[in-house]
Simulated assay, not measured.
Amino acid sequence: MSATTHDTDFQAALAEYATRWPDEAATVMLFGELLGDAENPFLRERLAGHFTASCWLVDAGGGRALLTHHKKLGLWLQLGGHADGERDLRIAALKEAEEESGLSGLRIEPGIFDLDRHRIPEHKGVPEHWHYDVRYVVRAGDNEAYVVSDESHDLAWREIVELAADDAADASVQRMARKWLARVTV
């Protein structure tokens, strides 16, 4: 598939997301502007900001999410990482989920689940920059025996109901937990 086709599909996914989450229109606009930038926004070398791909990795029953205790940031977050040139962020998110969890048999669901634009602090000579994180729902199969990768201090399955109410949780993780609960109760 061509870059133009991927970008058109991504624009359509952003528009669909904006319809579902009208309060996030300003965020959607920022993501759309980045997509239209002449400098490739799918490469981490674009330090003015670039796309990243993450997943809300839930167990087969949908009651728990797998989080990573991120080494660089020291926070419990969703799995994910850089697109490294991959314009289909669904592929990048699924790849990150597999690499960071060691789980096989993962399935990605269609559509964008969450968007989050956040600053990444300077680290090992890489200046502070923006991540435009596009998040997708990924479901685990029967095997939940994860393997901790080099990018994590640890991994843990967490009850989504508890995450939604946990004021100590990262704000974006708490938001995703609430979105998930709203979705499954509709």
Results as ranks from 00 to 15, higher is better:
Q174D: 04
R119K: 09
K124H: 13
L94P: 03
G105H: 14
G63W: 00
G85P: 14
E162T: 03
Y132T: 01
E128R: 03
R139C: 03
H50A: 02
D133P: 04
D142K: 13
D170A: 15
L67K: 12
S54M: 03
H129W: 03
V138N: 10
S152R: 14
H50Y: 14
A38I: 07
C55T: 06
A65I: 08
R117K: 11
E100T: 10
T27M: 13
E99W: 02
G102H: 13
K71S: 10
I160C: 04
E33C: 04
S54A: 08
A140C: 10
S152H: 12
M29F: 12
A156W: 04
G61E: 07
E159H: 03
D166N: 10
R107C: 05
L89E: 00
G36H: 10
T52P: 01
G36N: 14
A165C: 00
R119Q: 09
I112S: 00
L89P: 02
E33M: 15
L77R: 15
A168D: 12
L163R: 08
E122G: 08
A60K: 07
L34Q: 03
L115A: 11
L79I: 13
I91S: 11
H123N: 11
H123A: 09
E151F: 09
E144Y: 07
F31V: 05
E86T: 01
V58R: 06
S104F: 13
W76T: 09
G111V: 05
R117G: 02
S54C: 07
W56R: 07
H69F: 14
A165V: 00
C55R: 07
G61V: 03
A92K: 00
V147P: 05
H82C: 01
L35S: 08
L57G: 10
K95R: 13
A171M: 14
P41G: 05
A65V: 11
L106T: 07
Y136S: 11
R87M: 15
L43H: 02
A145G: 06
D88E: 04
G36L: 07
R87K: 15
E45S: 10
L103I: 15
K95L: 12
A165W: 00
E100Q: 15
R117A: 05
R119F: 00
R117H: 04
N40V: 01
H123D: 06
A92P: 05
K124F: 14
N40E: 05
L163A: 02
R119A: 15
H129T: 08
S172G: 09
A53F: 02
E144Q: 15
E162G: 01
H70W: 14
I112P: 01
A92R: 06
L77T: 13
L115K: 03
Y146A: 15
W56L: 06
L43Y: 01
H69C: 11
V173F: 11
L163N: 07
G105P: 01
